[in-house]
Design a protein around this nucleic acid. Structure first.
Ligand code: FES
Ligand code: FES
Lengths: 146, 146
DNA sequence: TACAATGTCGACCAGATTAGTCGTGAATCC
DNA sequence: GGATTCACGACTAATCTGGTCGACATTGTA
């Protein structure tokens, strides 16, 4: 498994923040409830996202979390690398891409797959995921109203 | 990390067997030495490869392991799925592809990446990896002789 | 037939990772 | 001062990884 729940949960959280952008800070408990995440685990993910500058948090009553950038400027690649570390499919590729050297004769295969994946993920933003979700909601409503 | 050492080691072992195909059974100890693998760990991988019909083994003096098919008919995808199980980048995709259903709104991203990767891996055979390795060896020799 | 070579199988193990929980404390607002 | 909310680190149970080891089965050869 390339991704743990961290990446998935973290992206879900950012989508939630993006959907409520401009409405002031969003609370951990609301994100957790709406996105079905364990709240105290989400805490760790938000901490990491904050450290890497994706969100800003405020304490006290009425506090919560907000995006620091426009959703369209947050790529899935950036989020996932923040939460998961390297997305390299195998150890040697991860090391190679930060200066290492030793690989066996198959590593070109994995390097290719890695490059493809990064390119894909770099082309998808949180804004697009929000739009995707909205479209899905509209479709569900339309279906129900018929 | 999508792949553990199992996949990498197993592919290395099959490359070794392919390189010595037609010369009778190849012994575990020889594979381990040539490919720099821990012999007793390699044992497990060979067992799995045997169970899935990639190799046949014979005991006793002069025994060892051999491929059951031509190297050009063994895809990297098949080998890796034998040794690693599903290569799905995230759990929900693995379940979806064997009949499950529940996914969150991002799973289409991972499904796409998964499909790409499988297609790539299906197009690479052990024979090609052997050829790749031979080309590399020739290049090294040429470089040395200059 | 005895023995050596070889594969087969399962038990066992230490360390890392995953997916959390919990408690204490700090900031903020009222 | 008290309520609310985030911040941070300690702790944990379960699982996975990357092995090792020992007992045993099979086969070729002297
Ligand atoms: S060591 Fe990286 S592919 Fe083999
Ligand atoms: S649950 Fe599979 S991508 Fe979110």
């Amino acid at each position: 498994m390339l991704l743990s729940t961290k990446g998935d949960y973290g992206v879900r959280a950012l989508i939630d923040l993006a959907k409520h952008a401009g409405e002031g800070p969003v609370q951990r408990s609301d994100i957790a409830r709406r996105r079905q995440l364990p709240e105290s685990y989400l805490d760790h993910l938000l901490a990491q996202l904050r450290r890497d500058g994706f969100i800003r948090s405020t304490r006290g009553p009425g506090g919560g979390h907000e995006l620091t950038r426009a959703p369209a400027e947050i790529t899935l690649l950036a989020v996932l690398e923040c939460l998961e570390g390297s997305l390299a499919p195998i150890g040697c590729v991860a090391e190679a891409n930060r200066g290492g050297e030793s690989m066996c004769g198959q590593s070109w295969v994995w390097q290719g797959i890695y490059d493809d994946m990064r390119k894909r993920l770099e082309g998808i933003t949180i804004a697009e995921l929000v739009e995707h979700e909205r479209a899905h909601e509209r479709a569900a409503v339309a279906n129900y109203s018929i």
